[in-house]
Design a protein around this nucleic acid. Structure first.
Length: 569
DNA sequence: GCCGTTTTCGGCCCGACTGTTTTCAGTCG
């Protein structure tokens, strides 16, 4: 019996109890027990007594023991017999929670979306106490939506929308300051919607402008403090705007950045001190409300360091607060080691990319166009590589305060060989090896290809090591513990590709790499100078894995980096 | 169901909103 199964079982029990209209605190006790197991890094066999964990008591421990002894939970079985599984999807309907669904089941025998639809159409639902015609109509409408509603949207779908809205808010003179919040700010791979905190003294004007300027498909709510719209883009995107006063900015931003679990923990901390946190401020025992200039001051009030948004999981950020100082921030980044130019499939020249790197305040960077195998990307032959190097050197001559290196993103070919001979690689400053083809090969073959690259003395880094695209493509499933072991053995860098399409390595793999002491490079894989902005996403994503900054290659100084790339020469 | 340096009973994060009621329960983020 593994830990994940136990966690899932406890969560499933909570779900079924919810559908019985069970006491919400009892339901949340099972969720807390699951979270307690998840938050503990030890395996089950390493814990002698689970009830020692905060959040696990007699009841939940009994379920765990049952699972360990028999492989299943008799309690869950009872619940499954009592509650039709067809009710589970109904929890996804906005406006319906456990209590109402329990009532529909008990009073009308509803056991599925189909029977709920029939009952609404027969106008039986409006007869129940607590329900009426409006609720019935809403349920019918949401049942329609349930079928064709798109799930969470990927970060690469949301990022351009966020950028566009930021430009709009930045152009509005009534807007004092603003920030994106929610799960996007926490660098989650997918989000249900986008949240913005907007400071203004003229909410009505801002509201009208937003509704006018945005591609609004549907206005869900448009009050003085909250505007909620669905935008008509490639996919419909829900966006919430919270309009607040300047003094409320920090606490509102914190509140709407979440996560929910993080907020719960913060409020418990406040409560223990006789204070009360809300989005409007921190209420003192005497009733006065404190507000803060920014989130850092808000955290400082509770004797906490600034907790970066992507760490706000409610799981371990309070226990590991002392480690936050070791984490990377955008200002630590001194370079970008993976980018393309017009020599292959990029949109800007070598000089333009170099200028863009300098404009970001970096010390160095590497041009890494594709190699000859990638014909669709106009990959470079050895001859063109030589010509490109001359152009890079010319840039360096003209810009002595910055250093642009000549590199390549070389394909690892389907047959396991590398796209350039050692004689070619030897002449390059920095060599990235990556897989862009034959993703469906067996894991053995994929690993054999990666091993060739690992063993080549001129290769410095493996880019986007799994080949995944978020919510689109799983990639080629390398044996990650093995790959990380090789990286350690052969002294290679593994990439955190910061392009929001990829975020590869993922959080879990980054944690494994860091535990093994393998250096990571956060790179944008820019095909356009504007893509250099993805570094921000990469840094926030790296925080989620608690990557220490001295393990991150592109926080190194020019001298440190130089020493690393020259070590075999 | 879980928890306790105000505690073994009484509270468990907080506030807005909606739709139902006519003062509030349920849902949501």
């Amino acid at each position: 019996m593994n830990k994940k199964t136990i966690i899932r079982t406890l969560e499933k029990i909570a779900l079924y109890m919810e559908l019985q209209g069970e006491n919400p605190f009892k339901v949340s006790a099972f969720r807390k027990a699951a979270a307690a197991l998840e938050g503990d890094e030890r395996s089950l066999s390493e814990m002698e007594d689970v009830t020692k964990l905060k959040g696990i008591g007699k009841g939940t421990a009994a379920v765990i023991e049952d699972l360990m002894a028999t492989g299943e939970s008799s309690y869950l079985k009872e619940l499954e017999e009592a509650v039709p599984s067809g009710l589970l999807p109904l929890l996804k309907l906005p406006g319906l929670g456990g209590k109402k669904i329990a009532k529909l089941h008990q009073e009308l025998g509803i056991d599925s979306a189909e029977s709920l639809k029939a009952a609404c159409e027969a106008q039986q639902v409006r007869e129940l106490a607590g329900f009426a015609a409006k609720t019935e109509e809403k349920i019918l409408k949401e049942l329609e939506n349930l079928a064709n509603r798109s799930e969470r949207l990927a970060i690469w779908q949301l990022e351009p929308v966020v950028l566009q809205i930021e430009a709009l808010l930045g152009s509005m003179k009534e807007v004092v300051r603003f920030s994106v919040a929610g799960s996007f700010r926490r660098a989650m791979e997918t989000s249900k919607d986008i949240d913005f905190i907007v400071v203004t003294e003229a909410p009505a004007t801002v509201r009208e402008q937003l509704l006018q300027e945005l591609a609004v498909q549907e206005v869900v709510a448009a009050g003085d403090t909250k505007i909620s719209v669905i935008l008509d883009l490639d996919e419909p995107v829900s966006v919430d705007f919270r309009l607040v006063k300047d003094a409320e900015y920090a606490t509102a931003l914190h509140h709407f950045t979440g996560s929910k679990d993080h907020n719960v923990r913060m409020r418990q901390i406040a409560k223990a001190r006789g204070e009360k946190i809300s989005e409007y401020g921190v209420e003192q025992a005497d009733g006065t409300v404190l507000t803060f200039e920014d989130e850092a001051q808000f955290f400082a009030h509770f004797d906490l360091p600034f907790i970066p948004p992507s760490l706000r999981t409610g799981k371990n950020e309070f226990d590991k607060a002392a480690d936050i100082a070791d984490l990377v921030t955008l200002t630590d980044i001194k370079a970008d080691l993976h980018m393309h130019t017009t020599w292959s499939d990029g949109a800007y020249s070598v000089a333009e990319m170099g200028q863009a790197l300098m404009a970001r305040g970096y010390q160095y960077g590497v041009i890494t166009d594709h190699s000859q195998f990638l014909k669709v990307a106009n990959g470079l032959t050895p001859e063109r590589l030589v010509k490109q190097r001359a152009e890079i050197e010319a840039f360096n001559q003209a810009n002595p305060t910055f250093r642009l290196y000549a590199g390549t993103e070389m394909d690892i070919l389907p047959d396991g060989s590398l796209d350039f001979e050692d004689a070619v690689l030897k002449e390059l400053d920095f060599v990235i090896a990556s897989i862009h083809s034959s993703f469906t090969q067996s894991q053995d073959k994929i690993m054999a290809r990666l091993l060739t690259a690992m063993q080549n003395p001129y290769v410095h880094m493996i880019a986007h090591p799994t080949g995944r695209i978020i919510a689109e493509r799983e990639g080629y499933h390398p044996d990650m513990p093995q790959l990380i072991a090789w990286a350690k053995e052969y002294g290679k860098i593994l990439e955190l590709n910061a392009n929001p399409y990829r975020l590869d390595l993922c959080v879990e793999h980054l944690e494994m790499a860091m535990a093994a002491g393998v250096p990571i490079a956060i790179n944008t894989d820019a095909h356009d100078s504007a893509h250099l902005r993805f570094m921000d996403i990469g840094v926030r994503y790296a925080n989620r894995a608690w990557l220490k900054k001295d393990m991150i290659v592109n926080t190194w100084t020019y001298e440190q980096f130089e020493a690393f790339i020259r070590r075999h020469k």
